[in-house]
């Protein structure tokens, strides 16, 4: 299928199964024949019961999981890069410029301050030092993280605070596609609202979203389409 000019991401015929060599080579199927697309400025939400493979699909798109077959075409200006076949170098480059990922859990090195984590993500995306600092301040402020926390490493923060650092980091770059895995799971209403606003702003600028939302309310407000992943699943819902 030829991607349309407005397409940001075109996923076709992805298959994924885990082979557990430590358990006699047992095959654990995850998803099969996954196909969908995300247009510029569109927010596509993956729905379906827990354990059906939603997170796995996000990880395959990001290149974190390997797909056995199929294609994952990501727009890069006029051309498309197939993540499923790309070299490590190409994927690293794509992650820097084109697609960002906000995981469900924050994973960082200990002893690096919250502010530095976010500013570093901005610098990695190409912003120069002072612009990166400005963006870090702005995002952390919008996500209602008090300044007194900025110089502290997030390891001792609450779940909700850590999640907000994660989101700030994810939004610190200039990515055209943002992949979000349950970004509002630990957040209260005020902060969910902040995230919804951030998403809306970016979408207005043409950024596409591929996301999983735990919260029905948020989903209803941001999703253009909800894709029920059960139809790709080889598993029973957990």
């Amino acid at each position: 299928m030829t991607p349309r000019p407005s397409d940001l991401l075109v996923v076709e015929a992805l298959d994924k199964a885990f082979i557990l060599h430590l358990h006699g080579g047992k095959r654990l199927p995850v998803v099969t024949n996954v196909s969908f697309s995300v247009a510029r400025g569109e927010c596509v939400v993956l729905g379906g019961p827990s354990g059906v493979g939603k997170s796995s699909i996000l990880k395959i798109v990001f290149g974190n999981y390997r797909s056995e077959c199929g294609s994952i075409r990501l727009a890069d200006g006029e051309r498309f890069l197939d993540i499923a076949r790309a070299s490590a170098r190409e994927i690293v480059d794509a992650r820097r410029r084109l697609m960002g990922y906000v995981s469900q859990f924050l994973r960082v090195i200990p002893r690096v301050s919250t502010f530095d984590i976010v500013a570093a993500a901005a610098r990695d995306a190409g912003l120069e030092a002072s612009a990166a600092k400005d963006r870090a301040s702005s995002l952390l402020t919008r996500l209602n993280l008090p300044e007194r926390l900025w110089s502290l490493p997030p390891a001792t923060f609450s779940g909700g605070e850590q999640q907000r650092v994660n989101i700030a980091r994810g939004f610190a770059g200039e990515h055209r596609l943002l992949i979000l895995d349950e970004p509002t799971a630990s957040l209260d209403a005020t902060n969910r609202e902040a995230v919804v606003e951030l998403i809306a702003e970016r979408r207005a600028g043409g950024v596409g979203f591929l996301a999983i939302f735990h919260d029905d309310d948020v989903r209803a407000r941001v999703a253009d389409r909800v894709l029920d992943v059960s139809k790709f699943s080889e598993r029973e819902g957990a």
């Binding site: 885990f18 990880k59 290149g63 974190n64 999981y65 390997r66 490590a88 994927i91 690293v92």
Partner: peptide
């Protein structure tokens, strides 16, 4: 061999 996070996560 491959992408670090891929080899370690999958």
């Amino acid at each position: 061999s491959g992408l670090t996070d891929r080899v370690l996560d999958d």
